[in-house]
């Protein structure tokens, strides 16, 4: 496996879609290639940092306002029907 091959398997690697053989090939490659090791680690961190931090917080006030507005619109449609 070379660096380009590794890159093409990267998403499947994180999504656990690779065969054991391919995973082993990736491990072997990254053991000897520092650049790919960094790309693998930091791409993993990229995914994790977005998963772990809610960047658009929905405050209870906003949620309540949204919820009331949604239900009011739907009930208005129901009444018309």
């Amino acid at each position: 496996m070379n660096c380009t091959d590794l890159l093409s398997h990267l998403s499947d690697y994180f999504d656990d879609q690779l065969t054991i053989e391919l995973r082993e090939e990736i491990s072997e490659h990254t053991a000897g290639c520092q650049h790919c090791r960094v790309v693998l680690n930091t791409t993993h961190q990229t995914i994790e940092v977005y998963k772990g931090n809610e960047i658009y917080e929905v405050s209870p006030g906003l949620r309540e306002r949204l919820h009331s507005a949604i239900m009011a619109k739907c009930l208005a449609v129901k009444k018309q029907a």
Partner: peptide
């Protein structure tokens, strides 16, 4: 989807590297 996802992940990684 897979192709876009890979590129999205790599682009985000590259941009975040400036900070991290």
């Amino acid at each position: 989807v897979k192709s876009r996802l890979l590129r999205a992940r790599l682009q985000l990684r590259e941009r975040l590297s400036r900070y991290f």
